[in-house]
């Protein structure tokens, strides 16, 4: 194992950990808000994938990374609107619709990608690696912690802002009430469905941004099914964080490190099959759930649609 601890290995591990952590951090922060408000958002994987697709597409067409991020947010919100209408407004089963949305976005983005890029690139194995200005000189290659894309720092600021929001503001209290005792919030004059719709859309936006980061900065291209469970890991992060944004950050860094082992071990030239290395983040999630699963705390009205007057 001594050969593993080379400079190349460590630098790619650290770099990879942050690059891999940011999408999960954004997804986890987003999921945290809707879980607080009582919506178990299984569709987050789909929102993330739509964000990745739209984010990549916009960045590719406009050659602007920032518009790409905006497109990613929009993509996530679009899927979240469907979720909000069906699960919050109409009170349909959140898990069935969540799985439905994830499957649908997987199919839809793969389909759209197939039809768009077989036109742009007549050859089928299209070289999606693009030369978007701003992307090529991004500091993903840089081994240091500094000089990353601005979005990384925005994500860190979001952790602090959300922590403040949950603890010190009216909105934070309202969110918690919507998840714990929606009926009490309703009686107190709060708008349960409104706050839940807001939380769901926020989740969509954050997940979409995370997806766009994954596609535009993490990979530099869009591949169908590219989120590969990152959204689900976001759900686990939110579950284990017990409502604390800072814990989501810590968790995402740990899982990011596990994910980046894939590339790092390949750089180190180890001959462990990639399948084994790809298992690491999921194994880490299971290990954490086995050790701390009991301590996960979820709002009491999570997953239950709110209907006024229903018992």
């Amino acid at each position: 194992m001594g050969g593993l601890l080379t400079e190349a290995f460590l630098s790619s591990l650290f770099t990879g950990a942050i690059v891999a952590a940011i999408p999960m951090l954004l997804a986890g922060l987003g999921e945290q808000m809707s879980e607080k408000a009582g919506v178990l958002n299984i569709g987050i994987e789909g929102m993330m994938l739509m964000g990745a697709y739209m984010g990549f597409l916009v960045a590719f067409k406009t050659e602007s990374l920032w518009l790409g991020f905006l497109g990613g947010i929009l993509g996530g919100v679009l899927v979240a609107i469907v979720m909000a209408v069906l699960c919050v407004r109409l009170g349909l089963n959140q898990i069935v619709i969540g799985i439905g949305l994830t499957l649908g976005v997987e199919g839809l983005t793969a389909l759209l990608h197939h039809f768009q890029f077989s036109r742009t690139y007549p050859r089928l194995p299209a070289p999606e690696r693009l030369n978007i200005p701003g992307l090529t000189d991004l500091p993903v290659i840089g081994p240091s912690l500094f000089g990353r894309h601005l979005i990384v720092y925005l994500a860190l600021i979001a952790v602090a802002v959300l922590a403040y929001l949950y603890r010190r503001t009216n909105l934070g209290m309202t969110l918690r009430a919507a998840g714990e005792r929606p009926a009490a919030l309703d009686v107190a004059g709060g708008n349960v469905l409104g706050i839940r719709v807001f939380a769901t859309l926020f989740t969509g936006g954050m997940a979409g941004l995370g997806g766009a980061y994954l596609a535009n900065i993490g990979a530099g291209l869009f591949i169908p099914f590219m989120t590969g469970g990152a959204g689900f890991i976001g759900i686990v992060l939110a579950m284990l964080a017990r409502g604390r944004p800072l814990w989501v950050l810590i968790g995402s860094l740990i899982f990011g490190a596990a994910l980046s082992m894939t590339t790092a071990l390949q750089v180190a030239g180890s001959n462990i099959p990639t399948d084994v290395i790809q298992m690491l983040p999921f194994a880490a999630v299971m290990l954490v759930l086995v050790l701390f699963g009991r301590r996960a705390k979820l709002p009491s009205a999570l997953g239950a649609a709110y209907e006024r007057g229903a018992r």
């Binding site: 069935v96 649908g104 199919g107």
Partner: peptide, 23 residues
């Protein structure tokens, strides 16, 4: 030349329409 992933779209629409029918 329609990728098989289209069935995913169909299945997803089915799940969603099913929920709506129930509603």
């Amino acid at each position: 030349g329609v990728p098989q992933n289209f069935t995913l779209v169909l299945v997803a629409s089915l799940l969603i329409c099913l929920g709506l029918g129930e509603y």
